[in-house]
C-alpha cells in the first residue's frame, strides 16, 4: 500500500524532537496522538499539522497572532497544569483552519496549545469560549492556496 510506504518514509525523516504529543488527541480524533508540525515558507503564516503515522492527512493550522492579534483565549488552570506550562512564553497557540469551497475559516473555540519545551499539546476549550467564533472568516487575510 502506497500510503503506508509514504508514512514509513516520512517517519524516518522526522526527528523525535519534532513530534508533537497530544495525549488526548483532537476532539473527534481521539486516537491520533502524534503529530508533526511542518511549514512551507511560501505559505506562512499557515502551517501543516500532519499525523505522524499518516503523512497524507493533517490539518492546516495558523498561529492566531498572525491573523487575529487581539485573540486572547483564557486557558483553564487545569489545562495549564496538564500541559505543564509555567510561563506564557512556554505556550504556542495554533488554531485549525477549515477550507470550504475556497473560503477559509479558523476555529477560535478550540485552540491547540503546545508546550514549546515538552511538545505536549492539547486542544483546549477556553474559559471564555463564548466570546469566540467556530468559523472566523479569514477572507480579509491573504490565504496561501
Amino acid at each position: 500500500m502506497k500510503t503506508v510506504e509514504i508514512a514509513e518514509q516520512e517517519r524516518l525523516q522526522v526527528k523525535q524532537e519534532n513530534i508533537i504529543q497530544m495525549p488526548l488527541g483532537l476532539l473527534g480524533f481521539e486516537r491520533i496522538k502524534k503529530f508533526v508540525l511542518l511549514a512551507n515558507p511560501e505559505e506562512a503564516p499557515f502551517m501543516w499539522l500532519q499525523m505522524l503515522d499518516n503523512a497524507n492527512q493533517g490539518f492546516v493550522v495558523v498561529p492566531p497572532s498572525s491573523v487575529l492579534p487581539n485573540y486572547a483565549p483564557d486557558i483553564s488552570s487545569q489545562d495549564i497544569e496538564f500541559l505543564g506550562i509555567r510561563a506564557a512564553t512556554d505556550a504556542l497557540v495554533l488554531n485549525i483552519v477549515t477550507v470550504r469551497g475556497g473560503e477559509a475559516t479558523v476555529n477560535l473555540k478550540g485552540p491547540i496549545v503546545v508546550n514549546r519545551n515538552t511538545l505536549v499539546a492539547k486542544q483546549c476549550i477556553p474559559v471564555n469560549v463564548a466570546n469566540f467564533s467556530l468559523q472566523q472568516p479569514l477572507a480579509a487575510i491573504p490565504v496561501a492556496a
Partner: peptide, 23 residues
C-alpha cells in the same frame, strides 16, 4: 516543500500575542 517547523523556543513564529493568559 514542507519542512519541519520546530515549535520550540527557536521557532520563528512570534508567540507574543498568542499566548494564553493563565487564570
Amino acid at each position: 516543500q514542507l519542512r519541519p517547523a520546530k515549535p520550540g523556543p527557536s521557532t520563528p513564529v512570534d508567540p507574543a500575542s498568542s499566548t494564553p493568559s493563565p487564570k
